[in-house]
């Protein structure tokens, strides 16, 4: 079983700088890391491939520095790592990002399964996975919380919805996005780190994957970020110190008034 895991580099701190003119993120400067939710996708893929003597390819689109998250994927156990990098990809929205990734996946060739994280913690759209499935015309199941069985080309999974856990049967090839509940990510081992050092990262650009220039980067993106604001999140709290019985009673009764207000509109 060959599994492709698209992973994203995200800023480590939540203090991210934005370019006020283009409305795109300025990545250099703030420390970057692997999108924490992609660890669950990697772990799921590694478990599945170990069961079926398969292989895992990690793929990212990003600046050259994104090679660092591919190293992390390799040290966890991925066997191949591809960095899609080109100035032409800059400013891509989820339409352009999913297009570029789907072209890269076509260029990789055959695969059985694509596993993405639920969402990236910066852009936070959860749109890239479903977008890739649409470009490639493969089965799509989102919010997968467990993989129950895989028999031949048929897989049974559970997905987390607002109503509960839904059981879904799907035919491979497919793309699934996974939630945190699905697995506990392993830590890189020393052996893994050594192997990562010895495994070259393949670098591809727009030309390598035969991308249509009109569909990538800022130019190929239908959406435009036109304004960025920092909302004032600080609210001024009404603070009650509950140090003795009286003050506690007062604080609790005031809270009950607030609760009543919610009930009555």
């Amino acid at each position: 079983m060959h599994i492709i895991v698209p992973i994203k580099q995200v800023p480590q701190s939540s203090a991210v700088k934005m370019d006020p003119v283009t409305g795109t993120m300025i990545r250099s400067g703030s420390a970057a890391t692997l999108n924490p939710l992609d660890l669950y996708a990697l772990e799921t893929a590694l478990c599945l491939s170990e069961r079926s003597a398969g292989s895992v390819t990690a793929l990212t689109m990003g600046p050259p520095s994104a090679a660092q998250i591919l190293k992390e994927a390799l040290s966890m156990g991925a066997s191949r790592a591809i960095l899609l990098t080109d100035r032409l990809f800059g400013g891509s929205d989820t339409y352009a990002t999913s297009y570029a990734l789907s072209k890269a996946i076509e260029h990789i060739g055959s695969f059985d399964l694509i596993i993405t994280g639920e969402r990236a913690t910066d852009g936070d759209t959860a749109q890239v996975g479903p977008g890739i499935a649409a470009w490639l015309d493969v089965a799509l199941v989102t919010y997968v919380s467990a993989i129950n069985t895989i028999v031949d080309r048929t897989m049974e999974v559970e997905r987390l919805t607002e109503e509960g856990y839904q059981a879904v049967r799907l035919t491979l090839p497919a793309l699934i996005s996974v939630v945190k509940e699905i697995a506990i990510p392993r830590l890189p081992t020393l052996r893994g780190k050594k192997r990562a050092m010895n495994t070259p990262i393949e670098e591809w650009d727009a030309r390598t994957i035969g991308a249509d220039i009109g569909k990538i980067g800022l130019k190929g993106s239908p959406t435009r970020v036109v304004k960025i604001e920092s909302p004032k999140v600080a609210r001024t709290a009404e603070v009650h110190i509950a140090s003795d019985e009286d003050s506690m009673k007062g604080a609790v009764d005031r809270l009950i008034d607030i609760i009543e207000e919610v009930y009555h509109g």
């Binding site: 939540s14 991210v16 409305g23 036109v226 304004k227 960025i228 920092s230 909302p231």
Partner: peptide, 9 residues
């Protein structure tokens, strides 16, 4: 970005 910014798109 975790609710830290509001973007108009």
């Amino acid at each position: 970005i975790g609710g830290n910014i509001m973007a108009t798109i």
